[in-house]
């Protein structure tokens, strides 16, 4: 088991290095001179040049990347050109809100997607099944930022039931979670349905039916447990997409998370924050996938036994 976790951790390292390389390259080709940004447009050219030298901006690309990595390992993502605070601190202040939002979104998508997927599979080709399939396609087609705006118009502005923005009141979480979770609920439903359909056709399910087992026990105990692996994979992947989707959701509801901070930084052209945020979220996504892989071993003894 430890061997398995270790192996997964080792496999993650080159991926993360690759991700940092992409983000660094994006930083590198971003137009605008960080030294000029730091000193302001009116600064004398000599001072800008001196700062460029000091910041290491005149060094070759790969040398700059090496320094970037050294700083990164110390938790240094550079300074925000707007707040002049460490980008790492700015991000870690706001990340918990984003994480919480993605987490609740995932829970909502599981609570809706799994039961609907199971019902669809057990009643394949019924009206319910077709309706659920069509509704699922619709749910993944609606842009979540538009869904958010429509929910605000309906539930906040017209009905006045829920706050349109902010988290000052606990009710403020409801609309963002629905906005974020709807699309992934549809994806979870789809995977659950197809995975269940595959399992239900197998011989041991027929055996269980033949011996007169109750249908509910067959579905939940025999079938669902074995259909779980693809569902867990989907939920894990979804969590990553929700971290990305949170960027838009937070913007719409003005939530104090990392995503809205990144979008605000786009407006103020504070690209160190944008790239730092993307890197932060990508690493979080990799860690979630690692956790999912480890979870497999607990769900499925067959995988566990491979790594004894």
């Amino acid at each position: 088991m430890y061997k398995y976790i270790l192996k997964r951790l080792l496999m993650m390292i080159p991926i993360i290095i690759g991700v940092t390389f992409i983000i660094f390259s994006m930083n590198y080709i971003t137009p605008g001179d960080p030294a000029l940004l730091a000193l302001g447009e009116a600064a004398p050219p000599e001072a800008v040049e001196a700062l460029r030298e000091e910041m290491g901006l005149n060094r070759p690309f790969l040398v700059q990347y090496a320094y970037y990595m050294i700083n990164l390992l110390q938790g240094d993502l550079g300074l925000s050109s707007v707040t002049h605070r460490s980008v790492f601190l700015e991000i870690s202040d706001r990340f918990p809100t984003t994480l919480a939002l993605a987490f609740y979104g995932t829970i909502l998508s599981v609570l809706i997607g799994v039961p609907l997927g199971i019902i669809s599979a057990t009643k394949q080709y019924s009206i319910f099944d077709s309706a659920a399939t069509a509704a699922g396609l619709l749910a993944v087609s609606i842009p979540n930022f538009w869904l958010g705006l429509m929910l605000i118009i309906t539930f906040s502005l017209n009905l006045g039931w829920l706050p349109p923005s902010g988290l000052d009141h606990p009710l403020g979480w409801i609309l963002p979670i629905i906005t974020l979770g709807t699309g992934s609920a549809a994806l979870v439903m789809r995977i659950t349905r197809s995975s269940m359909l595959e399992v239900i056709r197998q011989d041991y399910i027929r055996t269980a039916r033949a011996k007169g087992q109750k249908e509910s026990i067959i579905i939940w105990k025999h079938a669902f447990r074995n259909a779980l692996i693809p569902v867990v994979t989907a939920v894990g992947l979804d969590f990553g997409f929700l971290l990305g989707g949170a960027v838009l959701t937070e913007t719409i509801y003005a939530l104090p998370g990392l995503g809205r901070f990144m979008v605000d930084s786009i407006r103020t052209r504070d690209f160190m924050v944008v790239q730092g945020g993307v890197l932060f979220l990508a690493i979080a996504f990799s860690l979630v996938n690692l956790a999912v892989d480890i979870l497999y071993a607990y769900i499925d003894p067959r995988i566990k036994s491979q790594y004894k």
Partner: peptide, 13 residues
């Protein structure tokens, strides 16, 4: 490893 929309944001930025 980078969620799609985030990769797009990074490149577009």
């Amino acid at each position: 490893a980078i969620p799609n929309i985030l990769l797009a944001i990074s490149i577009a930025a």
